[in-house]
Design a binder for these strands. Structure first.
Lengths: 228, 228
DNA sequence: ACAAAAGTGTTCTAGTTACACCCATGA
DNA sequence: TCATGGGTGTAACTAGAACACTTTTGT
């Protein structure tokens, strides 16, 4: 190995994931109580292994703790304050993830205590995980305003009122349902299904599904997605 | 140290900066030829030291190589493919920086060969630095569309035509000067100075300067900043 | 007086907002 | 039949796009 490399100090590299879910009413984050600090809630996290990329590591850790695969996962920010982990200096790369809460299997996390918390009512968090969450919420709002990523938090089939509730929850406001549905439908990203949702309202709302073809194709070209 | 930590492998952590500058005509990036790979152009980079945060390290490295302080520096993305550096596994956190090209002192980089390249005419780059640059350009476009960060690339005093040329260069297009100046001035972020630029055109264009007070205040609240 | 860049105004269009009533259905 | 949530239309306003002529001044 070259001198230039030998002189350098290595550091532990961790991955932490902010996992967003939506239960139909409010926007939630999945937190766990784990190892070192059993008394404090923290994000789901783990260590980078020698044979994997950062994204692969985040994805693996998410799978190990939740059983979920094929979820929306995006790098958020690297955190590296010298003392962010008081035991050993660790650089943590935070990811944020959007999951379909119904697909999450709570048995998987096994020895961990895991719980979904409303983003408006979070407990104190380990290390700088609170900063990570704050940034993730900001990023979600920023991003969801311009790209229709909200679908990632809903089931395959969903209704317009459900989607509106999700956006209401993300922005902690109430959008106008007429403008909302007009704007959403004008993207032409939704396919109306013949079935209606039963049981929730008397009339029942039509189910829609995402035109995944178009969705992935245009995913990068959106601006100004929030309705009034 | 706890077992959980001991079992983990540490990695080298590097910082690499994509440094944007604008010479009045085209948008440029500062590249160097350095140590290991003397034949290949690369981004300015260095190693994370034990006592500094990621941002501090990026800032220090930028200073050491360019003499610049107080520049716009923003974290871009962490890159961690297992073999991105074929010699030793290294995680690199990329930053992007906007500097006033006139302030850059080429003598500082000393033993390094350093050169400004047009973003539309870049040489092959070391490791995954090409990916970093691509992402940085994308981010600059995305960001400059919504936040008036363009000022960071110009001198204290600048003219509207200069600012338009900068935006033309960023987006590789030509904006309409009437719409451009209307939109820029409508932000109320510019203060018109009594002096005119001499020597470039016969008539001379008025200088403006940024109302830094307002600028920093509203920096986070901009959307839809690109004129037609 | 002319060349070269600076500066400025208007019309048209498209998108956003605000707002209220009828519909379908199960109980 | 009535209560509940689902679904839709229109008018006013605002922002963006397209477009051309006049002004200043050094040579």
């Amino acid at each position: 190995m070259l001198d230039q490399y030998k002189q350098q100090r290595p550091y532990l590299v961790a991955l932490d994931s902010i996992i967003f879910g939506f239960d139909g009413e409010s926007l939630k984050i999945l937190l766990v109580k784990r190892g070192v600090e059993e008394k404090t809630w923290s994000l789901m996290g783990g260590w980078l292994q020698p044979d994997e990329s950062l994204g692969q590591a985040a994805s693996r850790i998410l799978f190990e703790l939740t059983g979920l695969t094929n979820v929306y996962l995006e790098q958020l920010h690297a955190f590296g304050e010298p003392n962010r982990d008081p035991i050993v200096r660790t650089v943590s790369v935070a990811y944020f993830s959007l999951v379909k809460i119904a697909d999450y299997d709570s048995k998987i996390s096994g020895d961990f205590q895991a719980h979904w918390f409303s983003i408006y009512d979070l407990p104190p968090l380990l290390f700088d995980h609170g900063d990570m969450v704050d940034l993730a919420i900001k990023r979600l709002r920023y991003k969801a305003a311009q790209h229709p990523i909200g679908f990632e938090l809903l089931n395959e089939k969903f209704t317009i009122p459900q989607l509106k509730k999700l956006y209401d929850a993300i922005y902690n406001t109430e959008f106008d349902k007429r403008n909302f549905s007009r704007k959403i439908l004008s993207t032409n990203l939704l396919i109306k299904l013949p079935e209606k949702q039963k049981g929730f309202s008397r009339r029942g709302a039509f189910f829609y599904t995402v035109d995944t073809e178009k969705y992935h194709h245009v995913a990068d070209s959106f601006l100004n997605f929030i309705p009034s």
